[in-house]
């Protein structure tokens, strides 16, 4: 019970932190417009290829990618936390830093879901492939699963920063490029050889995207299995993240690296 309260508090803390940068207006004008343009760009490439199937493939892929992208911003959140110097104080408190860190960025799941769903709905409308309502609701739910599992992956990547300094840009970029290329956003999954598909299947986004693609065409029952797989992948990364932060905090206690220093 207490844990839930702490998670809720941490969520709000993160959300308030976020609303200190973005207001609804700036979110719409600075961020949302940009991501809609990005998705439209890829959909346009599909249209230039003259294949409606291709257009839809690229449109859906790049829209859902946004959920994963926002999840990867967890890396920045962790780095910010580290720079703020709160880590030693968290480590001296009764709530484990692993819980605080994972809960604190969870607003990104909401942000990712909103960004991806919004971009998908708007762009699909622009490109004349509107999603009828009940179907859209299922799609949004599936996107939320992707956003959550990508966030778990992002927070793990971010927690690496606690142990290994100044690799923030590398972590974010490698993470993003991997997700972008391997997970079936612009290139179908079966394009890659078996071992790479294997890797892709344990990354966030891959299975969730399959599920969304199915749901978009109305096959929502078929979408259930990959969606569950996506959720499982997320839980896996989350577990790994909790273990990692716990190990890094333990290491910090031993080496004296839990410090104010950035």
């Amino acid at each position: 019970m207490n844990l839930l309260l702490i998670i809720r508090r941490a969520f709000w803390l993160g959300a308030r932190d976020y609303t200190a940068i973005f207001t609804w207006k700036t979110w719409l004008t600075n961020w949302f417009v940009r991501v809609v343009a990005q998705v439209s760009f890829f959909a346009l490439i599909g249209r230039m290829l003259g294949d409606p199937g291709q257009t839809q493939f690229l449109l859906v892929g790049n829209a859902v990618l946004l959920a994963a992208m926002v999840g990867m911003y967890a890396v920045n959140m962790v780095s910010w936390e580290r720079n703020a110097g709160t880590l030693p104080l968290l480590a001296a408190g009764p709530t484990h830093p692993a819980v605080v860190l994972t809960a604190r960025g969870s607003y990104l799941i909401l942000d990712g879901t909103l960004s991806a769903s919004g971009a998908l709905l708007v762009t699909a409308h622009l490109f004349g492939m509107p999603l009828p309502w009940p179907r859209a609701a299922i799609v949004i739910a599936l996107i939320a699963v992707v956003a959550a599992s990508a966030y778990c992956f992002g927070i793990l990547a971010g927690s690496l920063l606690l142990g290994f300094r100044s690799i923030q840009t590398i972590v974010t970029n490698v993470g993003l490029v991997t997700l972008m290329t391997l997970c079936g956003v612009n290139v179908p999954l079966d394009f890659y050889p078996e071992p790479m598909r294997w890797v892709a299947s344990v990354l966030p986004l891959t299975n969730g995207l399959v599920a969304v693609r199915l749901a978009v065409t109305g096959q929502w029952q078929a979408a259930l299995f990959p969606a569950a797989w996506e959720a499982l992948v997320g839980i896996g990364w989350l577990t790994l993240c909790l273990l990692m932060v716990t190990a890094l905090v333990r290491r910090g206690r031993r080496h004296g690296t839990l410090d104010y220093a950035s």
């Binding site: 803390l13 308030r16 932190d17 200190a20 940068i21 703020a84 709160t86 104080l89 001296a92 104010y260």
Partner: peptide, 15 residues
């Protein structure tokens, strides 16, 4: 315990 370290770090400055 409660811990207070000197200096102005360790706060959430945007809040």
């Amino acid at each position: 315990i409660g811990v207070v370290m000197g200096g102005d770090r360790g706060l959430y400055t945007r809040l």
